[in-house]
Design a protein around this nucleic acid. Structure first.
Ligand SMILES: [Zn+2]
Ligand SMILES: [Zn+2]
Ligand SMILES: [Zn+2]
Ligand SMILES: [Zn+2]
Lengths: 137, 137
DNA sequence: CTAATTGCTCTAGTGACTAGAGGTTCAAGA
DNA sequence: TCTTGAACCTCTAGTCACTAGAGCAATTAG
């Protein structure tokens, strides 16, 4: 049996975050001590590691809840789980593509200023005038 | 003189967002009609375009406020403006690098499942076990 | 003049936490 | 056994950049 602090140290997840996951229904309400403090079993530690790993990969609380629900039915087809992973991959690729466009524009904006004063600063001029940009964002 | 709806149509920024920018101090409080409705001058239209462009490039409200403050002093050195742009570029690059790591892991996780059921789904196994990952995230 | 549209303010909700207040319980040393 | 200090509890509010909605007032076209 782990206290919330033990669990926190073992997983690197802060105690308020663990309580938050419980509130969001990702962790089941654990047993309590006589004085009402949380006492976690090993299964909860493993589930928390699962949650943390999924969060580190950018999955939302909602997706993680779905995956946890699925993982309780070992005999069902895994198409839903695969779909969630593929959607997350697509979303990450989408964000990368958008950020790369920004990077391109920002590189120009941030490195082309040869001015000395605000009056002729390329940063300010470029922000005032989108037509200096190479594409939409 | 533009109403908030005129301004919205001309810039593509929704009316509540325009009010929000005013509240955040990015737009100065505009003149009002007799009936207390906002009436914007051309200068505000240009400033709103500036704000919108900066937002599209990912700058925060705070950075934009600083840039607006700077742009009122044409004779001052532009080092601060240049620094804000460079910091934003660095932040975008940082986010791209992190997302690319995620992309790599997610690609493996999302495409390697040859299982049929949750019980042997690679997605679930990979999320349960970070040691299957190629690197940290 | 009337009806439709547009505008006003204010409040609350989003996601995934984080910080703080104000109080209680636990564990270890004396 | 007692005491002290760390850890824990619940609850509320704040973060960021909006967005949605309620309930009302002003404007504009016919
Ligand atoms: Zn400059
Ligand atoms: Zn642009
Ligand atoms: Zn699968
Ligand atoms: Zn991993």
């Amino acid at each position: 049996m782990y206290s919330i602090g033990d669990l926190s140290r073992r997983t690197g997840v802060k105690a308020p975050t663990i309580r938050y996951y419980e509130q969001m229904g990702l962790l089941e309400a654990p047993q309590r001590s006589e004085g009402n403090q949380r006492r976690f079993a090993k299964a909860e530690l493993e589930r928390l590691a699962f949650i943390r790993h999924a969060r580190d990969l950018g999955l939302t609380i909602n997706s993680i809840r779905q995956l946890i629900d699925l993982s309780g039915h070992a005999d069902r087809p895994c198409a839903d789980a695969d779909r969630i992973a593929k959607e997350q991959l697509a979303s990450v690729r989408d964000r990368i593509a958008k950020l790369q466009k920004l990077e391109e524009e920002l590189e120009r904006i941030a490195t082309c200023c040869t001015g000395e004063t605000i009056g002729d600063c390329y940063v300010i001029r470029a922000l005032s005038n989108h037509s200096l940009c190479g594409h939409e964002h």
